[in-house]
Amino acid sequence: KVFVPPFKTKSHFHRVEQCVRNINLEENRQKQNIDGHGSDDSKNKINDNEIHQFNKNNSNQAVAVTFTKCEEEPLDLITSLQNARDIQDMRIKKKQRQRVFPQPGSLYLAKTSTLPRISLKAAVGGQVPSACSHKQLYTYGVSKHCIKINSKNAESFQFHTEDYFGKESLWTGKGIQLADGGWLIPSNDGKAGKEEFYRALCDTPGVDPKLISRIWVYNHYRWIIWKLAAMECAFPKEFANRCLSPERVLLQLKYRYDTEIDRSRRSAIKKIMERDDTAAKTLVLCVSDIISLSANISETSSNKTSSADTQKVAIIELTDGWYAVKAQLDPPLLAVLKNGRLTVGQKIILHGAELVGSPDACTPLEAPESLMLKISANSTRPARWYTKLGFFPDPRPFPLPLSSLFSDGGNVGCVDVIIQRAYPIQWMEKTSSGLYIFRNEREEEKEAAKYVEAQQKRLEALFTKIQEEFEEHEENTTKPYLPSRALTRQQVRALQDGAELYEAVKNAADPA
Results as ranks from 00 to 15, higher is better:
Arg421Thr: 04
Gly105Asp: 02
Ser245Ile: 13
Ser213Phe: 04
Arg117Gln: 11
Phe239Cys: 05
Val249Ala: 08
Val249Glu: 03
Leu137Met: 14
Tyr323Cys: 04
Pro236Arg: 07
Phe239Leu: 08
His220Tyr: 03
Ala377Asp: 01
Cys243Ser: 08
Ile92Thr: 08
Ala327Thr: 10
Arg222Lys: 09
Val325Ala: 12
Thr319Lys: 01
Gly175Glu: 11
Pro236Thr: 08
Gly409Arg: 05
Arg381Trp: 04
Thr319Ala: 04
Glu196Lys: 03
Gly141Asp: 12
Leu389Pro: 02
Leu371Arg: 11
Val100Asp: 09
Pro397Thr: 05
Asp262Gly: 13
Leu389Arg: 02
Arg99His: 14
Ile419Phe: 05
Pro382Thr: 11
Gly193Arg: 04
Gly141Ser: 12
Asp86Gly: 13
Gly321Val: 02
Val124Ile: 10
Gly105Arg: 02
Lys271Asn: 06
Ala229Ser: 10
Val207Glu: 01
Trp223Arg: 02
Ile418Thr: 08
Leu211Pro: 04
Gly193Glu: 03
Tyr221His: 01
Trp216Arg: 04
Pro209Thr: 07
Met231Lys: 07
Pro364Leu: 07
Ser301Phe: 13
Ala353Gly: 14
Leu253Pro: 03
Ser106Asn: 08
Pro395Ser: 09
Val325Ile: 15
Pro395Leu: 10
Ser130Cys: 13
Pro368Leu: 05
Ser288Phe: 02
Leu283Pro: 00
Gly345Ser: 00
Leu201Pro: 00
Ile261Met: 09
Asp208His: 12
Ile348Ser: 01
Gly141Arg: 11
Pro364Ser: 06
Glu247Ala: 10
Asp262Tyr: 10
Pro236Ala: 10
Phe391Leu: 08
Tyr255His: 08
Ala361Val: 13
Asn241Ser: 13
Arg275Gly: 14
Phe197Cys: 07
Ile224Phe: 01
Pro397Arg: 04
Ser113Phe: 07
Arg85Gly: 05
Ile225Thr: 10
Asp320His: 01
Gly105Val: 02
Gly182Arg: 03
Pro236Leu: 05
Met231Thr: 08
Val207Leu: 04
Trp216Cys: 01
Val284Asp: 01
Leu184Phe: 09
Lys430Asn: 06
Gly321Trp: 03
Ala200Thr: 14
Gln426Arg: 15
Pro397His: 05
Asp309Val: 11
Ser294Asn: 15
Cys414Phe: 06
Ser106Arg: 15
Glu354Val: 13
Gly413Asp: 11
Leu184His: 02
Phe239Ser: 02
Ala367Thr: 09
Gln88Arg: 08
Thr319Arg: 02
Phe159Val: 02
Trp216Ser: 00
Phe239Val: 05
Phe165Ser: 07
Ile290Lys: 05
Thr114Ile: 10
Asp320Gly: 00
Asp330Glu: 07
Arg256Ser: 01
Asp277Gly: 07
Gly181Arg: 08
Ser80Asn: 14
Ala240Gly: 14
Asp416Val: 03
Pro186Ser: 08
Lys227Gln: 01
Leu371Pro: 07
Pro364Arg: 00
Val284Ala: 11
Leu365His: 07
Pro236His: 07
Asp208Gly: 04
Asp320Ala: 01
Trp385Arg: 02
Glu247Gly: 10
Arg199Thr: 11
Ser119Phe: 05
Ala383Pro: 03
Ser403Leu: 14
Leu211His: 12
Asn378Ile: 01
Ala268Ser: 08
Glu168Lys: 15
Leu115Val: 15
Pro424Ser: 13
Ser288Tyr: 04
Pro129His: 09
Leu107Pro: 02
Val344Ile: 03
Glu260Lys: 00
Lys95Glu: 06
Ala367Asp: 07
Glu247Val: 09
Pro246Ser: 04
Gly345Asp: 00
Asn219Asp: 04
Ser432Pro: 14
Asp208Ala: 09
His220Arg: 00
Pro382Leu: 13
Leu350Pro: 01
